[in-house]
Computed example of a mutant assay.
Amino acid sequence: MATRDPLDFDVGVEVDEEGTPSPSSISPPSSPLSYLDRDRHVAFFEMLYDLMPYHYQSQEINRLTLAFFTISGLHLLQALDRVDKDRVANWVLSFQALPRSRAELKNGQFYGFHGSRTSQFHPDENGVSVHNAGHLASTYCALAILKTVGFNLLTIDKESILISMRNLQQPDGSFMPVHVGAETDLRFVYCAAAICFMLEDWSGMDREKAKDYILNCQSYDGGFGLMPGLESHGGGTYCAVASLRLMGYIEDDLLSKNATSFIVNVPLLLDWCMQRQAIDGGFQGRANKYSDTCYAFW
């Protein structure tokens, strides 16, 4: 029989004859946050709240996205009291692109939110700074921040956002992030669905067309590619399933019902997701790729 120091384990922990603690006898941590240094994480987010470190400055054009991660991080760490919520809301609202008249809502541009001051203005042919159009992903981040800090989204000019957002939906149901010269894939379908969901108004998109586009992205292996015909991808799969859920095509109790009644192949989808866990415990975004913390989130 193996010997051990009696202080190796806490009093009351059962061990087998080899001195190994029984899994059933080890008490779980009192809080999920005991696995990380919460205070250091909070301090890091507080730093990002006050300034942008030099190695993030190349991402200034995505400042609203960085702010979204900062505010959401503090919220998840139960430290949202560290920020001035009114100040945050006013700062975010300053990025909204507003039409000069209602007629401009038909000019093809998107009147959502800009990602930063850099993208808010651009020089015209005479070098004069003029307002730029909004960006779909930045609008998603802006509304998510406002909702997180408790701002009443029903008080903003949602009509400008939703009417002009329909300009971004393509004939196949996908969305462009801006009104001209941009790619289309599931990321922006998700942004559009989340925007409509948060604003409690689905007039900004054709849900049936968006649903058909999403279903066309499901691959033979159960996952979803970012576009029809592409390899299944962790982020694309999240965007697909989350969009269908937000649009009302998937219910909360998905697994308790007959899988054959759903619009997606649920068993195949679950099998693909389970196979994405790598040997190191993390998750990979695609088959035969290294694991990455972002895919654990997706």
Rank of each mutant, 00 (worst) to 15 (best):
L98Q: 11
T184E: 13
M1N: 13
L270W: 05
A103H: 11
P23D: 06
P123N: 03
I161M: 01
L48N: 09
L136F: 01
T148Q: 12
E208F: 09
R166D: 03
V88C: 06
P267Y: 01
D201M: 12
G112M: 03
S27T: 04
G12A: 04
N265L: 00
A192L: 03
S116E: 04
E14L: 11
D201V: 07
G181M: 02
F69Q: 04
I161K: 06
A296H: 10
P6Y: 09
A103I: 02
L154G: 10
A137Q: 02
S22P: 00
D39E: 14
V178P: 06
S232L: 03
G229L: 07
A2I: 14
E104K: 10
Y249A: 12
F110K: 14
I156M: 05
R63W: 08
L255P: 07
G222Q: 05
L153Q: 08
L143W: 00
D50R: 15
M176R: 12
H131L: 14
A133K: 08
Y249C: 13
L154A: 14
D37G: 04
F110G: 05
A43Q: 13
Y295D: 01
Q218S: 08
R166E: 06
D185I: 03
L33S: 09
N167Q: 05
K209Y: 00
V178N: 15
V13H: 05
Y238F: 15
M247S: 10
G281A: 08
Y238M: 06
P29L: 14
D280E: 09
Q170G: 00
F69K: 04
Q96V: 08
L154K: 15
F151R: 05
F297K: 02
S164V: 05
I279M: 13
L66A: 10
E46H: 06
V92R: 15
A103E: 13
N126D: 10
K85V: 11
S232T: 07
Y54C: 04
N107R: 12
M274G: 08
F188I: 04
S31I: 03
Y54K: 14
A43I: 12
K209M: 05
H75S: 15
Q275A: 07
K289M: 02
F113T: 06
R102F: 01
Q218R: 14
